[in-house]
Simulated scan of single mutants.
Amino acid sequence: MHIVTLTADEVDDLLYLTRANEADDLHQTLAELSQKYGCETETVLEACIDPATGNSVLHYCSANGLAELLQTLLGHSKTSDLSGKAPDRAQLINRRNAQGNTPLHWAAYNGHLAVVKLLVDAGADMWVKNAAGHLAMFEAERADKSEVVQYLLETGGRAVEQTGREGAASAEDEAEVQADGEGVGNGTAKTKAQAEGGVEVEMEDAGASG
């Protein structure tokens, strides 16, 4: 998979079409750019990053709960290249924006459970921390998204039990999972970052305008 550099207008178009959930136009534009640059669609998605915010197409899908569109976009990265191997989706799925937030952070904070599940199933790393030192499950907890918190706690708990797994939780992450688990439903969950007054990271639904 080779690297391409999109123009500012091309990046703006792709991000706008995603935020506006104009799925047909988005897929058509992706196909046109893929043909223009002679690359796979995933390569275009990798190159589509807002230079000011670091946000990707997946960030906006996640922020706005666009599960159907996200599933389609994730499907592009399952196609094989000339070597017969499917490209690694980890870089795209776990990309951190300027505030260190991954698509999973945004989906969790905004309570989009279906998107959270899609991301985790696709290989999203739930142990990535943002610039404030917060896991996605912590962002869901502070936003009072109980269903997302419960899902991530259960998923994280299973991961903690899998010793030796690449990307497994650290001792600090395990403690955070346990702390969140004790506070689910009563608003008492506190992580080390919260107790130390971690920096608040704003994550809101990303509308089509602006």
Score class of each variant (00 low, 15 high):
residue 22 E to P: 00
residue 129 K to Q: 12
residue 60 Y to V: 12
residue 107 A to M: 06
residue 48 C to R: 07
residue 53 T to M: 10
residue 87 P to S: 12
residue 155 T to E: 13
residue 141 E to A: 14
residue 117 K to C: 04
residue 63 A to H: 01
residue 11 V to P: 15
residue 118 L to K: 00
residue 124 A to K: 04
residue 191 T to C: 09
residue 143 A to I: 10
residue 8 A to L: 14
residue 209 S to K: 10
residue 165 R to I: 11
residue 161 E to P: 06
residue 83 S to H: 09
residue 107 A to C: 10
residue 167 G to R: 03
residue 114 A to V: 06
residue 69 L to M: 13
residue 18 T to H: 03
residue 194 Q to V: 02
residue 106 W to K: 11
residue 209 S to W: 04
residue 170 S to D: 05
residue 197 G to P: 09
residue 93 I to D: 00
residue 77 S to W: 03
residue 48 C to A: 15
residue 176 E to I: 04
residue 76 H to V: 06
residue 44 V to T: 08
residue 113 L to Y: 10
residue 159 A to V: 02
residue 73 L to R: 01
residue 75 G to P: 02
residue 103 P to D: 04
residue 112 H to I: 14
residue 160 V to Y: 11
residue 103 P to T: 06
residue 93 I to Y: 00
residue 104 L to Q: 10
residue 18 T to G: 04
residue 200 E to N: 05
residue 92 L to G: 02
residue 24 D to M: 04
residue 155 T to L: 07
residue 189 A to Q: 06
residue 207 G to S: 06
residue 194 Q to R: 12
residue 90 A to W: 00
residue 63 A to S: 14
residue 16 Y to M: 04
residue 57 V to H: 08
residue 156 G to D: 12
residue 36 K to E: 02
residue 77 S to N: 00
residue 43 T to F: 03
residue 208 A to S: 15
residue 147 E to D: 15
residue 179 A to N: 10
residue 35 Q to M: 07
residue 195 A to C: 13
residue 163 T to Q: 10
residue 13 D to M: 11
residue 95 R to T: 07
residue 124 A to S: 12
residue 29 T to A: 04
residue 170 S to F: 13
residue 121 D to C: 01
residue 123 G to N: 07
residue 60 Y to A: 13
residue 200 E to D: 13
residue 199 V to H: 02
residue 123 G to P: 05
residue 157 G to N: 10
residue 121 D to L: 03
residue 71 Q to L: 04
residue 184 V to N: 03
residue 156 G to K: 03
residue 111 G to C: 08
residue 70 L to F: 09
residue 26 L to G: 06
residue 192 K to E: 15
residue 107 A to I: 03
residue 133 G to A: 05
residue 160 V to P: 06
residue 92 L to E: 06
residue 188 T to F: 05
residue 3 I to Y: 15
residue 109 Y to W: 08
